[in-house]
Structure formats: structure tokens, C-alpha cells
Nucleic acid binder design. Structure first.
Lengths: 204, 204
DNA sequence: CTGTGTGAAGGCTTTCACAGCC
DNA sequence: GGCTGTGAAAGCCTTCACACAG
């Protein structure tokens, strides 16, 4: 089987989200046409994307929602439990820590780290903020692979190095810098300022 | 002149960020090779991208940093002042409100709105949270075009409608839903759960 | 000789057209 | 008849190769 386009993977997540909403409304089957409209893509693209999972749809009828959800979660790897840690408990880190969207998607943030473990924002959170020294231990003990990085740009590379050394293989990076990491480590960058800048360009 | 690829626009923002760092270090000129390495792209791609701005580099020498920064900010539209509002002052909205990265990129968040204008989190912020009723007035008075949307998914579409009605033409959407808007309105989606899901796939 | 600018080639992604199944 | 699955075509973006300027 040839590799699946990166863009497709993203869209599969989008479809899954729409499907969850259909499930809540007890919709049993959905056509590529309807689901495509909900996800703002063309029906042919949706079918092509879903085609990578093997044949799922019933011709003349549509896709059975439950089966499709099952196949998608299995494919995306959201079926097995994935513990996540968050490093950098400033405003953004703290907000993400309590972000409901993550648990809905099947993730649980099991620990929070910061240089300043007594940070004021720690008050009122469900877990204590731990000092950086304990990072490696927690990662090893709980076999954590994923980390959310919300430290200032100036510290990001150094902290990323620590994450890699501890055994983290996937980083969701909110610091506005390009991280240098080994090939084996996946980094997804979320650059908030660039998203705004991008909008600014298109409204000119 | 033919339209510039969307991906290129994104990368131009990345280059600009790297260039700012060079400016701070008083570097006068930079080669496509060096800048490309800093931005994690191939040198040829960098040159192709910058080529859209017209000839800027000196052959045999490199790009003059100051000139390039000037051209890029002008091109991206960050040279003129762009006021931004933020709607939805939950955890995430509040964090973004005080996010330093936006002002560094040349944006200022001039107002914050929420259903519950007396929201506890409003305490300690530099501006008061305003009720939704005042949104249209502020947008018109200050000619705001850009909005950051950080309300729950269930409210997102309705609030987006209000934004559009008020005259907003660009929305940075953090709600995990696809917004339906007129063609004239640009929406950039930042879907945090999908970014994590995406990482989860690649570490399998 | 160094390093930019750019048409051409290559690779990846989307769209089309239609065959195949319910 | 309705709707999925998929090879082929089109479009977009990246990479290459090299001309050209300092």
C-alpha cells in the first residue's frame, strides 16, 4: 500500500469530527455528498480520502456512520490511549491544560511542567505543576510519547532537546521558532502570529 | 502578475520572523542558503518564494536584511496598523488576549467580548470585557476587520454570523467547527485537537 | 567565483469521468 | 436510480539546472 498524503490525514480528522456530531444525532448512514458539505470539501475528494481506508461505503446508500467512525479512530491511532504532557505553564499552557477539546479527541494531559513549579497559575488546576527535573522520570514511567510545548521562544529549543532526550517522539510546538530535532521526532508547529499575519494579507 | 501560492504566503511569514532575529543581531546581509536553513526549507524554494516580491537580492552577495524586511512587511500588510478583536474570553481567549506574539507581529487586540461580560477572568486584564451587544459598534467605530474567535463550538456559528454582520472580514477560528461564511470573509482554522490527532497518527 | 533569478522538469494533490455495486 | 470506488487528467507546488549579475 502506498503512503497516504499528509493533507488527507488532516482531513480524515475533520471528517471524524463531523461524524461524531452525526453519531450524537443518531444518524445511521451518511452520503459522501452530505459529509463533504459538512467538512467543506468536494464529494470526490472525500471519497478519495476514505478510499485509503479500504471499501467502507455501501453503494447506492452511503457510509455507515458507526463503522466509519471505528475505522477512522483505528486508523488515526486514537483508539489506543495516548498520554500527553505539557511543558510551559504560562497563560497559553495553562489554557491548553484545561482545554476540553483534547479529551474529547481522546487525549489526556497527564502532567504539566514548568521551570517555576510554584507558578501562581498552578492554583486551581487539577494537577500540580512539576519542576523540569522530573520530566524524564514521568515520561519514562508512563511511556509518554507526545508533548505540547508552550514555553517562550527563547527557551523552546533547549526544552525541546530535553524532551527528545527523555524519549518524546512527537511535539506540538506553540513557540514561534523552528525546532531542530532528530528525523525520528515529529514536530507540528502552531504559530498563532503567523495565522493572523496570513489573514492580514488576504484582507488587503 | 499571477497569484502567489498560498503556501508561499505562509513561508514568507516564517522568513520574516527569522529576519527579525537577524536584525536584532545586526546582521546586514544574508544568503538564501543561510536563511533557508534557519527556516528549514530548501534554498531554491526560498529564492523562488522571494522572487515573487521582485528582485531583492544582490547576486554573489545575498539579501540585504533591512530591505527584505521592509518588502516583506509591506507585502504581508503588516506595515499598516491592524486592530483585532477577540470574542470568547474563556481560558483560551484570555490566554490569547495576553499573548505577546501578536504585538510582536504588529497586531494589537483592541477589545475583548463575551456573553458574560463580568467573567471572573476579566479581573487583572488591561481592558474590560465587553458584552456582545457592543461588538457591532466597536467594529464600526474602529474599522476592525480581523477577529479571533474562541467561543465553544456550539456557539461558534452564531457568533461568526454576528461578526460577519458587524463587518468583520477575517476570522481566526479556534472553535472545532467549520464555519459557514460568505465568500468575501476569510477564515483560518486553528484546530488544536486535530493537530494532536495528527501527531498521534505519525508516531504509530 | 559566489550566490540570485527563473524556465523546465518532476512530484504530489485534487478533480474529473465513469465503471461497478446496491 | 443512487451513490461509492478508482484510474486518468489537470492543476499546483517543489526541485532542478543553469543563465546571469556582482
Amino acid at each position: 500500500m502506498k503512503p497516504i498524503p499528509r493533507r488527507t490525514i488532516y482531513r480524515l480528522s475533520v471528517y471524524l469530527r463531523s461524524l461524531h456530531r452525526l453519531q450524537e444525532n443518531h444518524v445511521a448512514t451518511v452520503s459522501s455528498d452530505a459529509l463533504a458539505k459538512a467538512a467543506c470539501v468536494k464529494p470526490t475528494q472525500l471519497r478519495k480520502d476514505l478510499g485509503h481506508l479500504g471499501p467502507v461505503g455501501k453503494r447506492g446508500l452511503g457510509y455507515p456512520v458507526d463503522v466509519l467512525v471505528g475505522k477512522l479512530t483505528a486508523f488515526l491511532g486514537t483508539n489506543r490511549f495516548q498520554p500527553v504532557i505539557i511543558v510551559g505553564m504560562g497563560n497559553l499552557g495553562t489554557a491548553l491544560f484545561s482545554y476540553k477539546g483534547f479529551e474529547k479527541a481522546g487525549f489526556e494531559i497527564i502532567a504539566a511542567f514548568d521551570n517555576d513549579s510554584g507558578r501562581a497559575r498552578g492554583k486551581g488546576l487539577s494537577v500540580k505543576i512539576q519542576p523540569m527535573e522530573e520530566l524524564a522520570g514521568v515520561v519514562k514511567k508512563r511511556s509518554v510519547k507526545m508533548a505540547i510545548l508552550t514555553v517562550p521562544g527563547t527557551a523552546a529549543q533547549e526544552v525541546a532537546n530535553q524532551l527528545v532526550a527523555a524519549g518524546i517522539t512527537a511535539i506540538l510546538n506553540f513557540a514561534p521558532v523552528i525546532l531542530l530535532t532528530p528525523e525520528s521526532v515529529i514536530v507540528n508547529n502552531v504559530n498563532l502570529a503567523i495565522e493572523l499575519e496570513n489573514l492580514a494579507y488576504f484582507i488587503q
